[in-house]
Write a protein that binds this DNA or RNA. Structure first.
Lengths: 229, 229
DNA sequence: CCCATTTGTCACAGCTCTGTCATAGCTTTG
DNA sequence: CAAAGCTATGACAGAGCTGTGACAAATGGG
């Protein structure tokens, strides 16, 4: 996921860039309106964080020009309490706004909301570990030549987590952080989810012993199946 | 994987240390900036968790000095919403930050992200002494070509303690401190644990004499097996 | 708005791990 | 030589962990 950050305040732009990179975005930057348009055309970002006050072409003009050509989500940066700017920006097609000063956490929340509303999702990338194949975009699992099995969103998250770290044992906390995020989940939820994933893996490859191993008191890991078995 | 935790809040430092040890890290601690630099040079950690507010040299200075010499990943601990500190730290070369208060799971997620971005991945932390191999991340023991045997958490702690000090006799008190922590354990618990470990070693290498020797009135040590036996 | 699916919660059974205690045998000391 | 102390061993009980099944709540789609 790529974001274009447009702000002539380079310090703030760096904080924004860092924050979004930490969330996994690719980030490009522009420090004036004209460069913003050039970057937008060259990089085709999925999201634009756009300050209103810019040299060489103001944010409103940039917004108008982009809206004449595309629906790329635009998040406006405005100065506190300038409602006139907010109304104008939203009228020109911006999707949301955030007023300075704001915390990184607010930025993350806003960008996620904008992207969710625009219906975007990352491109497909099938993961393969041993004879297990996972298509996260379709949430489909296949083991060897067995049937394709659908996974629920959380089952998919868990399997992806285990596949990324195949061959290693992940602690309960590490898995919960990956699946539910920093404050979410608990051991009971994880136990239940592991059970459901094991059932799906068994549907995809009946009769095999569990591909998810438990190291009691430590965590879970994905067993790499022997090709000969 | 070794982490250096630098925080003058000893309670928080202990919580961080416990959390990272649970994730399999070796952990060393410093409670002020100067000691942090000394520890960094002596221990060569793979990751530094660095508080900003420290006695005898603040976190920023520590960060600057380390960055002048190395790319060791640095995770800054900051107080909630002090963006100025965040900016300054990132500008000095810190790789990420986490704001207090935070949960252990946030810490785990952030450290993994930082290490992933720095291209590091956990190297195997398998210990080998003579023909004994211990994998603490799986709590598995192997002796020579014998079968792999699972250990319980305390068995694993004890064996690791003996392997670290292979060739030496450790006193009862030293072993109890390592396994149960200060003030924990007693001689009867240790005797029982040594017995259980001996049984596991025997499972892993049947028929051999005990690899754990007793020095009556003093303690226990790990016998280095002769290659010829 | 309804229905189906997904997820969270709870209770229970079984198993593992650890601590404790009793006993036997060996070693040391008086 | 006897007694005391130390070490090893075996067994048992309790706490906690793990897996499982079922049901309720939440969510999303039609």
């Amino acid at each position: 996921m790529k974001a274009l950050i447009v702000d002539d305040d380079r310090v703030l732009a760096d904080v924004l860039a860092f924050t979004l990179r930490r969330e996994g975005y690719q980030v490009v930057q522009a420090f004036d309106g004209e460069t913003a348009l050039e970057r937008w055309q060259a990089d085709r970002p999925d999201l634009i964080i756009l300050d209103v006050n810019l040299p060489r072409l103001d944010g409103f003009s940039v917004c108008r020009r982009i809206r004449a050509q595309a629906d790329t989500p635009i998040l406006l940066l405005t100065v506190r309490d300038q409602e006139e700017d907010i109304l104008r920006g939203l009228g020109l097609g911006a999707d949301d706004y955030i007023t300075k000063p704001f915390s990184p956490r607010q930025l993350v929340a806003r960008t996620q909301a904008v992207l969710r509303r625009s219906g975007q999702r990352p491109t497909s990338s099938i993961r393969t570990v041993g004879d297990i194949q996972l298509d996260p975009s379709r949430r489909e699992l296949g083991v060897g030549q067995g049937p394709t099995v659908s996974l629920t969103p959380l089952e998919c998250q868990l399997l992806e987590c285990l596949m990324i770290n195949a061959g290693h044992v992940l602690t309960y906390d590490a898995i919960m952080a990956h699946v539910w995020g920093p404050e979410g989940g608990d051991r009971d939820m994880l136990r239940q989810l592991v059970r459901r994933l094991r059932q799906k893996l068994d549907q995809a490859c009946p009769g095999e012993s569990s591909r998810v191993e438990t190291v009691p008191g430590l965590g879970y890991g994905l067993v790499l199946a022997s090709v000969h078995s």
